Amino acid sequence: MKVENVYLAGVGTYVPALMPLEQAVESGAFGADEYKDSGMESVSVEDALSAPEMAVLAAGTAIRRSGHSPDDFAALLHSNTFIQGPDGWSPSHYILLHTLDRPITSTVIQQGCNGVLTSLEMAAHRLLADPEKDAVLLTAADNFNTPLVDRFHSSALFLLADGASSLVVSRRSGFAKVLAIRSVSDPKLEWRHRTDDSLLPPREPVGRLLDFETRVKYWQRKWADGAKPPGGNFIDLLSVVAERTLAEAGLSMDDVARVTHVGFNEDPLHALYFEPLGIDAARGTWEQSRRIGHAGMNDVVIGLEHLWLTGQVVPGDKVLMVGTTPGMEVGCAVVEITQGPDGA
């Protein structure tokens, strides 16, 4: 979708202290060979703040940078991939109370690691359809610091990282202009993140949560036994969505200065993202993401803020933001930097 008059007015993140992976190896939480193969240096770990509390901090920064007042906002959209608090509780309204404190709609967008880009698309629709208010607040946060999750082995593709991010989407102006945004799914790939066990009960009563690796190995065994893969191709999906989104903005990959992406380990990041996009690590945010890990949907915002604050992108530069989620679905946004970070 080509977008007119939609901007990113503010950005904020919260990245906790970084645990050197040597420390994880020494404690036995991570293998020495796994450390070497990952290409990663450290992972962000938060042991004091919950996910919603981290989101509040990130949002405070984004709101201050945006120049918007609380009365300007039409909605708050919060994204997460993991448990935020008590069952049946609303983390988005907790965040709303401690940020804008206005009686506006506030909801959770559970769209995996594409949550921020899905929220951005929904915010653009809201602002284009409703002229009453000028801004939408996006927040995202996860804290995996719990015995329920093994951040080092939930997947062979990444190390789960704690963190939060926030964007203020505005119809007025901002440090970046949204040129186009699009999400495309291939539901034939939904099998990748489950086994063929019954979906009742909806959650296993025991065992680790977010155990993607066990599900991957299940399908590998099925194929080894002669089962036919259900179909779908993630790499093709990624390539198609990126090309379509860029085309809607009147651009090609050659026009893109930098790409913000998920914080995967080195080899899968190259195979699943860099190669299909036709870029090298220098055009991505690998130099930063290898220090943080995979903070879910926060990765693309953490990367964008880092590029902007450090002057690695300047006014006129185009940035492609790429998110993905089980389903499978890929989201892309093209933004043009319009202002530098002076005074941010």
Rank of each mutant, 00 (worst) to 15 (best):
E4G: 03
P16G: 04
A17C: 07
L18A: 01
L21R: 02
L21G: 01
V25L: 10
Y35L: 15
D37V: 13
S38M: 04
G39W: 06
D47A: 15
A58Y: 02
A59K: 06
T61H: 12
S69T: 08
A74G: 14
L77Y: 03
H78P: 03
H78L: 03
W89I: 04
H93E: 11
H98S: 07
L100K: 03
T105V: 12
C113L: 09
G115L: 01
M122T: 05
A123F: 07
H125R: 05
P131H: 08
E132I: 05
A135E: 03
D142H: 01
D142V: 00
P147T: 01
L148E: 09
V149M: 11
V169M: 00
S170L: 07
G174P: 00
G174M: 02
A180E: 02
E190F: 14
H193I: 14
D197E: 15
S198T: 11
S198N: 15
L199F: 08
P201F: 07
P202G: 13
L209A: 15
D211I: 03
F212R: 13
E213V: 05
T214D: 12
K217L: 15
W219D: 08
N233T: 12
I235C: 14
L238G: 09
V240K: 13
E243K: 15
T245E: 06
A247S: 11
G250D: 13
G250M: 08
D254K: 15
D254I: 04
D255Q: 07
V256K: 09
V256W: 12
A257T: 13
V262W: 05
P268Y: 10
F274I: 11
P276V: 14
D280C: 09
R291I: 02
R291E: 01
I292M: 07
I292N: 00
M297C: 11
D299H: 03
V300T: 10
V301N: 10
G311N: 08
V314I: 13
D317H: 11
L320E: 02
M321P: 05
V322F: 05
G323L: 00
P326E: 05
I337W: 01
I337R: 00
G340L: 03
D342I: 04
